[in-house]
Simulated assay, not measured.
Amino acid sequence: MELSISDIIQIIGILASLLTSLIAIIISVITLRQNSKMIEESLRPNIQIYPVYINSIVYIIVKNFGSSQAYIDEISCSHKFTKKEIFGDDLGTDIFERLNGALFSPGYSIKCPLVGYAVTDDLFKFDIKYHTNKKRYSDTFLFNLTINAPFADVYPSSNNTEQCLKNIAKELHDIVKINL
């Protein structure tokens, strides 16, 4: 049986339609996977660790910038803290291990104050592991305290109303700075 030209054209049309449909399905699946990853990234917790200097106090801040809660599995710091660095408190040498098991809601932060001039190491390395109900995350943060705050915050003492107003302005500045 011989195929007529009309039959061949119809078969080619069917094959072209089938190929186009398969390509469309493949593109749709790839797009759905990418969208799923983007949605997951936008909804995941995002724990960050960073220092902020205010006067002679260094605050090491652990904050969840993400949009879902995170459970801290493990957090460790390469620096071993001394009593002098943590205002004489006896919290041990790895003060951040107390955060293991903590729940960080979106926007929640912990601020750890340190005596800036008493800190013996400049380089801090933090390793953190945390999870949500569905996925586990880990990250490493490395920062140099002296590079992150090369200039000290110095403010004059007050003896009159004008000086008091300057101190109030300084404190407002510090409040804004600590909320970073």
Results as ranks from 00 to 15, higher is better:
residue 113 P to S: 12
residue 113 P to C: 09
residue 114 L to G: 03
residue 114 L to W: 03
residue 117 Y to T: 12
residue 117 Y to S: 15
residue 117 Y to F: 10
residue 118 A to I: 06
residue 118 A to L: 07
residue 119 V to T: 13
residue 121 D to K: 13
residue 121 D to T: 13
residue 121 D to I: 07
residue 122 D to M: 01
residue 123 L to P: 02
residue 123 L to R: 03
residue 124 F to W: 05
residue 124 F to N: 00
residue 124 F to V: 03
residue 125 K to M: 10
residue 125 K to H: 06
residue 125 K to R: 12
residue 126 F to W: 01
residue 126 F to N: 01
residue 127 D to L: 02
residue 127 D to K: 07
residue 128 I to F: 02
residue 128 I to N: 00
residue 129 K to I: 06
residue 129 K to M: 00
residue 129 K to E: 06
residue 130 Y to W: 12
residue 130 Y to Q: 02
residue 131 H to N: 06
residue 132 T to K: 02
residue 134 K to I: 05
residue 134 K to C: 00
residue 135 K to G: 02
residue 135 K to D: 09
residue 135 K to Q: 09
residue 136 R to G: 11
residue 136 R to F: 08
residue 137 Y to M: 05
residue 137 Y to Q: 06
residue 138 S to Q: 09
residue 138 S to G: 01
residue 138 S to C: 02
residue 138 S to L: 01
residue 139 D to I: 01
residue 139 D to E: 13
residue 141 F to V: 14
residue 141 F to K: 12
residue 141 F to G: 08
residue 141 F to R: 10
residue 142 L to D: 04
residue 142 L to N: 12
residue 143 F to T: 07
residue 143 F to G: 07
residue 144 N to D: 15
residue 144 N to Q: 01
residue 147 I to V: 14
residue 147 I to D: 03
residue 148 N to K: 14
residue 149 A to C: 07
residue 150 P to V: 13
residue 151 F to N: 12
residue 152 A to R: 10
residue 153 D to Y: 08
residue 153 D to M: 14
residue 154 V to A: 05
residue 154 V to K: 04
residue 154 V to R: 03
residue 155 Y to H: 06
residue 155 Y to R: 06
residue 155 Y to L: 06
residue 156 P to W: 03
residue 156 P to A: 13
residue 157 S to A: 13
residue 157 S to M: 04
residue 157 S to K: 09
residue 159 N to T: 11
residue 160 N to H: 08
residue 160 N to K: 05
residue 161 T to Y: 14
residue 161 T to W: 07
residue 161 T to S: 09
residue 163 Q to E: 15
residue 163 Q to F: 07
residue 165 L to T: 02
residue 165 L to K: 07
residue 165 L to W: 08
residue 165 L to N: 07
residue 165 L to H: 03
residue 165 L to S: 06
residue 166 K to T: 15
residue 166 K to G: 14
residue 166 K to C: 04
residue 166 K to P: 00
residue 166 K to V: 12
residue 167 N to A: 09
residue 168 I to V: 15
residue 168 I to C: 02
residue 168 I to F: 04
residue 169 A to G: 12
residue 169 A to I: 06
residue 170 K to Y: 11
residue 171 E to L: 15
residue 172 L to C: 09
residue 173 H to N: 13
residue 173 H to P: 00
residue 174 D to T: 08
